[in-house]
Amino acid sequence: MTGKLKRNKILLDEKDKLLDNYYLLNHWLEIKNLGKSVSMYFEWKGYKNIAIYGMAELANRLMEDLEDSPIRVIYGVDRDVSCTISRIRDVYDISEELPKADVIVVTPFYAYENIKHQLEKKVNYPIVSLEEVVWSV
């Protein structure tokens, strides 16, 4: 693949990620406007203590949505802890041993399958994508 074709593919991939984020956030706002919260998903599933993978903007929105709910975010996980912008206090590198949680929510849902595969080597509890959580409410 030539340099120009490679750059174009990267730009298209980024455009797809942004569009996917737009649709997810738009649906999330629709849920909020109906007086609902993604906490409903966790309550339906019986998850009380969750971990979040991906310490960027979507992790912050998830934490904000869960603030006044019975769902607790007990820690975060990222592949590069030094670059996190999340407000989660306890953040683990994916290479570290991870504490027990009821579920891990993967916020970079466009890379869910790859991240899930990595996490399955470390934990034996459910791993879900933020996309599944939001679209299930």
Results as ranks from 00 to 15, higher is better:
P70C: 05
V105H: 04
I88D: 00
I115K: 00
S86N: 03
L98V: 03
D102G: 06
R79D: 11
R79I: 13
Y112G: 03
Y92P: 05
I104N: 04
D102V: 07
Q118A: 07
C83N: 15
D78H: 01
E97P: 04
Y75A: 11
C83H: 15
D80W: 12
D90K: 15
V91K: 07
Y75P: 03
E113Q: 14
R61G: 00
V77G: 01
D65T: 02
L66G: 04
Q118K: 11
V81Q: 04
S86F: 04
R87T: 08
P108A: 02
I71V: 11
Y112I: 08
I94S: 09
S82M: 14
S95R: 15
I115M: 01
R87K: 15
I115Y: 02
I74M: 09
L62I: 01
I74Q: 09
D90V: 11
T84V: 10
L98T: 02
E96H: 13
R79M: 13
T107G: 06
Y110D: 13
D68Y: 12
Y92K: 07
P70F: 03
V105C: 05
K100L: 08
P108V: 03
I85N: 15
L62R: 01
L66W: 00
F109L: 09
D90W: 09
V91C: 05
P70E: 11
G76K: 04
A111V: 06
P108L: 09
M63E: 10
E97Q: 14
S69A: 10
